[in-house]
Design a binder for these strands. Structure first.
Lengths: 348, 348
DNA sequence: ACACTTTTTTGGAGCGCTCCAAGTTTATTC
DNA sequence: GAATAAACTTGGAGCGCTCCAAAAAAGTGT
């Protein structure tokens, strides 16, 4: 029995002359075992190089993984979550709760196509679904019979969800810029697939937002524009994946007349700022830029970003708590706030 | 059988009138099953609300988790890893490989005291041990009989390890400052437990570095100081946990005569920069600051940090690859480079 | 020394699954 | 239509463990 295979509880028991159950107790409930027996078992374990019960067996027997999963949204990979300022604050919030609960945080891999099987197979006791989930995903999440929370999508009263009041945020952003006198806008919306920016020219007709997050913010922008007698249909909308480095270039090349750029994430706004530096465009003297989310990064750019903030870490934290508590489903809407900093000013 | 309990393969088989094996095949090798049988099984599964094989059983049977673990170093929690600029770049590197391999990245929870059981019980196929590991940890890692890599500690030829040439880095940092004319230094070393900064006054005697990382860098600093006829014993050394906000205050309060501050991480250096801003101290005119690691953040501070850089993302990536490859143990030493930016200048 | 209580130890059952050798059915050939 | 080949299905074995009811051993009091 001593040939290569890793030893099991039973092997240790055989060597120590006790039963499997006793060996199990030595490792899990040492107080139940007489001390001389315990020592004998420990000696046998040492001799065999046995280092405690294999987690595989335990998992099957106990039915728990002691882990919660974070499933990246849409087309994102784990790396994108960590790269994104927003993603990492969110995950930070989740991790704080995990640390408190002694649970592992699993960043679950899966492409957009494999996402349902990902949900089906993740080795977790509950999970958090990044925003932009579609109905299939929700169905498979429910099938898993594990507590879960959806971010930035309301999936009805039976499903935990947390989202921000994006409409109000967008409205405030436009309101602020309009009050400063801006009338020439460009909107950076979020591209949900990978690839270069997609430009929607004014008058091209309604763009259909795939996800609630995008829809609400677009709606807020539209409402804010309407208040100064502008139509969102006359505003160019560029869909870019946040962090896409060419976003700024597209904006400045194609829409030089714009004096204000509305975005749906700080990361997009930061990208624009970077491009402005490259081109010697002064922010906010020549162009105003507004971010979204209020990440820590937004306060550290030059100039600091005016942005629609919310408590991202808090959101992650609440999400994790909901998973651990596993109580009645709740739908939480977090409030947002417009923080005015240096990236916005009167139009040139 | 239809009462509350979640259905199993066997339940589905019973309803569909086939064996467990066939149901398993429907989900795992559908091509082996005749199409009418497959449909019957799928119908039964739908009817019972069965959504594919439970991962618990699969794990025990297959013996694989399809995940690699990142085990935070020393006294750190998962949240600290994500908070730290260095930590998240490292994890980013790891995550890139996980994305490529379709594996989950588990950020494994555990306090310093529970770390050995953490290693024993983590639901992973291999793992990466953050730096500052002690011998007990290495032993329990080896017992787990899983591929693993240690960061920033050389644990001998039988164990995978990756570390940077910290001594050279430290030497270059001092050399640069000395060449500028600095003679009054303070060193920020890393506190490995939680708590406020610990100040070692000059002449208090050797401080014993607990971990290879600290030891090497201190040694490099010592050597660099010796080259301009200074002794490290005459330099105050402050141990702070990176990110500790009071680090800067302690430096400026206790050692106003210092013109150059050497650190062991960018995060520490950034903390000092922040405090300098708060006090109206001009960097580098009044005090020079050097970081360590070369995180992305170091390039974005005002002024940008002079720092000892290495490829952190690459390090994470290589570590993950070593775990996946599970080949002959290797010990990799990565080179470092001094990047001179705006945070260093001649002494006042 | 015996009955009785308390402390320890035992081993069967079973968690849900996949593998695989063997068995069964269906298709093909002559 | 029997023989042979191909396609599909079966169910036992076993992954390593923990639980738990029951048995065994040790301790206690008279």
């Amino acid at each position: 029995m001593n040939h290569s295979k890793t030893p099991t509880l039973a092997d240790v028991g055989r060597v120590a002359g006790v039963s499997r159950g006793t060996v199990s107790n030595v490792f899990n409930h040492p107080d139940l075992v007489r001390s001389d027996v315990r020592e004998r078992v420990e000696a046998a374990a040492r001799q065999l190089g046995y280092d405690g019960p294999d987690p595989r067996g335990r998992v099957l027997r106990n039915g728990k993984f002691n882990a919660i999963g974070f499933i990246p949204p849409g087309a994102y990979a784990i790396a994108d979550v960590i790269r994104s300022p927003y993603g990492r604050e969110l995950v930070l919030g989740v991790s704080l709760v995990c640390d408190g609960a002694g649970a592992t945080l699993s960043l679950v891999n899966g492409t957009e196509e494999t996402r349902t099987s990902t949900i089906r197979e993740a080795l977790v006791d509950g999970f958090i679904l990044g925003h932009s989930v579609d109905i299939d995903l929700i169905t498979s999440a429910q099938r898993r019979r594990l507590p879960f929370v959806i971010l930035e999508s309301d999936a009805g009263p039976d499903i935990n969800s947390i989202r921000i009041d994006g409409r109000s945020g967008a409205l405030m952003a436009v309101g602020h810029l309009a009050a400063l006198g801006h009338r020439h806008f460009v909107i950076l919306s979020i591209r949900r697939t990978s690839g270069p920016p997609i430009v929607h020219m004014p008058g091209e007709g309604k763009i259909t937002a795939g996800f609630q997050l995008d829809y609400e913010r677009l709606d807020g922008f539209a409402q804010g524009l309407a208040e100064v007698n502008l139509s969102i249909d006359d505003v160019p909308i560029i869909e870019t994946t946040p962090g896409e480095p060419s976003a700024g270039a597209v904006v400045f090349d194609r829409f030089p007349e714009a004096t204000a750029i509305l975005t749906m994430s700080d990361w997009q706004a930061i990208t624009v700022l970077d491009e402005a530096v490259r081109r010697g465009i002064n922010i906010p003297e020549q162009v105003s830029v507004v971010g979204f989310d209020g990440t820590a990064e937004s306060a550290r750019t030059t100039p600091p970003l005016t942005t629609v903030t919310h408590d991202i870490i808090g959101k992650g934290r609440i999400a994790a708590q909901m998973v651990f508590e596993n109580g009645q489903p709740r739908q939480i809407i977090m409030s947002v706030e417009l923080v005015i900093r240096g990236s916005t000013g009167p139009p040139r």
